[in-house]
């Protein structure tokens, strides 16, 4: 069950403020890092939505993101559609893909669910890797950012684009929080806790799971379009399964099932990666060790552990 506790609100505001200040007063490189964090955070919230609250540990979230990015690129660059319409098609493609995966895997759980999502994600990866028309393994360039000059906003300015991305991150968080607090979110948490009992209550769990995956796909799609507009370039590397694994790492590192934890996890992972790669080329080993440590130390993640201690402290105060 999801609660937007005061601690979560404070953490969310603090994290967003940190990103805003870091981007505003930092160099060009700092803004690049902040956008990288935001894209990863959106993707991680999207994964936390279905893994942390619905128990669906997916390894195809990179593919959802990549599909949206590729359809956005295909419509706008190859077919010359308008940017808004292309973005709509991109999001729709991600939603349809995620919904199909959710529908097909609705009766599978545990390791078989993980393997099935891995397979579907790699299937999408292979398609774009081979599709010469869309650049194949070379990727594709030429994407453009939305033209908001009618509102006096120039997204081609690095700082403004960063704030635009920050706004989307906040929107994604609010949407997820609202949905998790609705009846739908409660049913989803119920399925996570005890699927058999939810079925006995007359709830069509397959439908709920499919819808949760589809909504997760929508959020991952937003991250994909943001990624395509950020670097003006997309490649099949967006869809590869190890990226989905990294997103799962972010969720675990920050705190699974907390919704704000993934933002903390994304900040930490990206900052850690950049600070370590300044010294050594071997940053994978640190990421791997952090992941192993995060799981072995209880799996609550950084925000989750902090929240756990805070709640314990508060209970001590009231007792």
């Amino acid at each position: 069950m999801f609660y937007q506790s005061p601690l979560r609100t404070i953490t969310l505001i603090a994290a967003l403020c940190f990103l805003a200040i870091y981007a505003s007063f930092g160099s060009y490189f700092a803004r690049e890092i902040v956008i990288e964090i935001i894209i990863l955070a959106i993707l991680a919230i999207s994964l936390d939505f279905c893994a942390g609250f619905g128990g669906m540990v997916s390894l195809c979230h990179g593919a959802m993101m990549g599909i949206a990015a590729y359809f956005y690129g295909m419509m706008s660059v190859k077919l010359g559609w308008g940017l808004t319409a292309s973005a709509g098609i991109g999001l729709a493609a991600a939603v349809i893909f995620a919904g199909c995966v959710g529908w097909v895997t609705a009766r599978i759980s545990g390791i078989f669910f993980i393997m099935a999502t891995l397979a579907f994600g790699q299937m999408a990866y292979t398609i774009f890797f081979r599709w010469r028309w869309l650049g194949g393994d070379d990727g594709m360039g030429g994407m453009r950012r939305f033209d908001l000059s009618a509102w006096g906003v120039n997204l081609n300015d690095g700082l403004i684009f960063t704030f635009w991305a920050l706004g989307i991150l906040l929107l994604v968080y609010i949407l997820s929080a609202l949905l998790l607090r609705s009846g739908f979110g409660r049913s989803l948490s119920g399925i996570h806790a005890n699927e058999g009992r939810m079925q006995a209550l007359g709830i069509n769990t397959a439908t709920i799971r499919t819808q949760a995956m589809a909504f997760s796909g929508l959020m991952a799609g937003l991250a994909g379009i943001l990624a395509a507009q950020h670097t003006f370039y997309i490649s099949p590397e967006l869809l590869v399964w190890t990226l989905s694994g990294e997103v799962l790492l972010v969720v675990i590192l920050g705190g699974i099932g907390t919704l704000v934890g993934p933002i903390i996890g994304a900040i930490l992972l990206v900052l850690m990666k950049h600070s370590i790669s300044a010294y050594t080329d071997y940053w994978h080993i640190f990421v791997g060790l952090v992941l192993i440590f995060a799981v072995l130390s209880g799996g609550r993640g950084i925000f989750g552990q902090g929240e756990y201690w805070w709640q314990k402290y508060m209970r001590g105060q009231h007792a």
Partner: peptide
């Protein structure tokens, strides 16, 4: 997750 970390 842990064995994914081991791969790295």
């Amino acid at each position: 997750l842990v064995t994914f970390g081991l791969i790295f």
